[in-house]
Design a protein around this nucleic acid. Structure first.
Lengths: 146, 146
DNA sequence: AGCTATTTGCGAATGATTTGCAAAAAGGCG
DNA sequence: CGCCTTTTTGCAAATCATTCGCAAATAGCT
């Protein structure tokens, strides 16, 4: 269903990282899905392919991938960290408080204003995060679950 | 040094909350300081006044105050939650990555743009958080620790 | 195949926060 | 003021997500 894992694997291998059976599985899961799963969710999906994979390995692989810049870890409100695949472009997040679904967005204007605020306060931005927690607006006559 | 705890106490008492010795102490600590301490820090300060107060009580009191809207809890990057006193006005945070110091700010323009983004995506904002992690810019000839 | 440095799975350790429970104390009330 | 009922407290144990130690398994090279 996907072969986007090939390039990523070479990249890791070139960095001296061994491509194990479990890492292959996790990379495939990340490539095939486009959501923002937490470690448990990734683990649950992985177990379907490999009954013996462990949650520790999922965590270790996620740290590894994060260090290599292949994924990004987010700590949204409410407990566990969630991961997103290859965030080439910077973006912020809108989290649906009812479903947990994450929508990515960018606003150059907001980015610029942040720079301005930081500069005014005498700081240079090292990192930042903007999370909007929202509830879907249903217009009259709209379907419940599109 | 302060008597800002009086009104808060009546407010709580009216809500059927008992004003205990330990709650008095914690309220005073919150009123006297203007920083963003975590539970441990509040506990450390409280112990100076009452040798027998417990960390659980600090946590319980913070939850209570948060439910009552008297304080706000923040989960910035890096472990423990930090609390801030009576955030009457909404504002965002700039966290100094070197000192952990928190600077509050507001940008009406950023607020407005967030509304716009959410609306465009079909959402109404329930909550949001904007955190800028920054490093202080030192102009040449400026003192190290002002 | 054989060798060695990496990885894995497991269970135990961590660190922040929460909770169960019996003992202590707050807020009426008479 | 003393009494009574309900709320709180302190303590220790429980949670929850995440990390770690270690011996056994295995990737990648020759």
């Amino acid at each position: 269903m996907s072969d986007k894992t090939g390039p990523m694997e070479s990249l890791l291998r070139d960095a001296g990282v061994r491509i194990t059976r479990q890492r292959k599985i996790i990379l495939k899961i990340l490539a095939d899905h486009d959501d923002h799963p937490d470690a448990q969710a990734i683990f649950r999906r992985a177990v379907l392919t490999d009954k013996t994979i462990s949650l520790s390995t999922v965590y270790r692989t996620m740290s590894l991938l994060e260090e290599r810049g292949a994924i990004q870890r987010h700590s949204f409100q409410g407990g566990r960290a969630r991961y997103e695949h290859a965030p080439g472009d910077h973006h912020d997040h809108l989290i649906d408080v009812e479903t947990g679904q994450v929508i990515e967005f960018i606003s150059e204007r907001i980015e610029a204003l942040q720079e301005e605020v930081a500069r005014r306060l005498g700081y240079e931005i090292v990192d930042h995060r903007l999370e909007i927690y929202g509830r879907r607006i249903r217009k009259p006559g709209e379907k419940q679950q599109p």
